[in-house]
Amino acid sequence: MFGSEGPTLRELTVQALSSVEHGYDLLAPKFDHTPFRTPDDVLDSVARALAPLGPFADGLDLCCGTGAGTRVLTGLCRRSVTGVDFSAGMLDIARRRVRPADGPGVAWVRGDARALPFTAAFDLVVSFGAFGHFLPRELPGLFAQVRSVLRPGGRFAFPVFAPPRPRHPAYWLLLGFDTVMRVRNALWRPPFVMYYRAFRLGTVLRELERAGLAVELGVLPGFGRRADGSPRARLVVARRADAPPAAVSPRPAE
């Protein structure tokens, strides 16, 4: 379906009828040959944007998959880089593909992002393309976990792309995908949580601040602007504040 090296329609169907964890175990050997992998131009743009904020000592790639984001961290962190994912299959591929000849040491940990097995050990946490696997009600707990593994002043960074407008075919494609997944999860167990339209920037910014993270919103160059002048790609950088988490005034939804 995605070329000769990508998964077939049958393989994708089997994956979609599995749990999220087992589905990614099955998809892992062919994951990098699908559109689900974060493109290199996005990874490179994020790396360039984060470089001036360093140097960083220790980095964490949250929901690392096959390690594309982990490779970005090896160019930003001096001492250590850790990839964490709950799919053993994805971690196995990552171990084989991310082997820097020099630079920081790389470790792989199987774990759930909602219950991270770390203390405040990282200066930089990144994540690429994983947030569709978390329901909106899970964001407060997820961001609290991220804050707990950041050192004071540490940063949590991830790219966000503007959703397509209704007149764009991609809008209806994503709407259709999410609708199919909701029907599938209503009729089939275990659920497979993956929704492209549930991760809304306004809600995300509010929950980051409620978790005790001071948020800066930047622009990723190279991806253009929409007709209204707003950027197509942004970089969210949330810094661990020294003050404890507190309720904040709502931001306007975007």
Rank of each mutant, 00 (worst) to 15 (best):
G132D: 00
T119A: 15
R151A: 09
F128V: 04
V109C: 14
V149W: 10
F158E: 00
F158M: 03
G154A: 07
R114A: 14
V126T: 15
H133I: 08
V125Y: 01
D112Y: 02
L135H: 12
A115E: 15
E138I: 12
A120S: 14
F118T: 06
F128N: 08
A121L: 02
D112R: 01
V149S: 02
F131C: 10
V126H: 01
L139H: 13
A121K: 06
E138L: 10
P152Q: 12
F131G: 00
D112E: 07
D112I: 02
L142F: 15
R151L: 14
G129W: 06
P140G: 13
F134N: 04
V126L: 14
F143G: 01
A130Y: 03
P136D: 06
A121S: 15
S127V: 06
L124Y: 05
F156P: 04
D123S: 00
T119L: 13
R147W: 06
R137D: 11
G132A: 12
R151M: 09
P152L: 14
V109F: 07
L135D: 10
R137M: 12
V125C: 08
H133V: 08
H133D: 13
F156G: 03
F118E: 01
R151H: 07
S127R: 05
S148I: 08
P140C: 05
A120W: 01
F143I: 14
R110M: 07
G129A: 08
F122N: 02
S148M: 07
G153Q: 10
F128C: 12
E138Q: 15
L150S: 05
T119S: 15
F158H: 08
P152C: 09
R147S: 09
A157V: 13
F131K: 00
G154P: 06
L135R: 15
F131N: 02
T119D: 14
G132P: 07
G141E: 12
V109I: 12
L150F: 03
V149Q: 03
P140Y: 11
L139A: 12
F143T: 13
L142M: 12
G153S: 07
L124P: 01
G141M: 11
V126S: 08
R147L: 05
G129V: 03
L142D: 08
L142I: 09
V109R: 13
A115R: 10
L142A: 06
L142K: 03
P152K: 11
F122P: 02
F122E: 02
A121H: 12
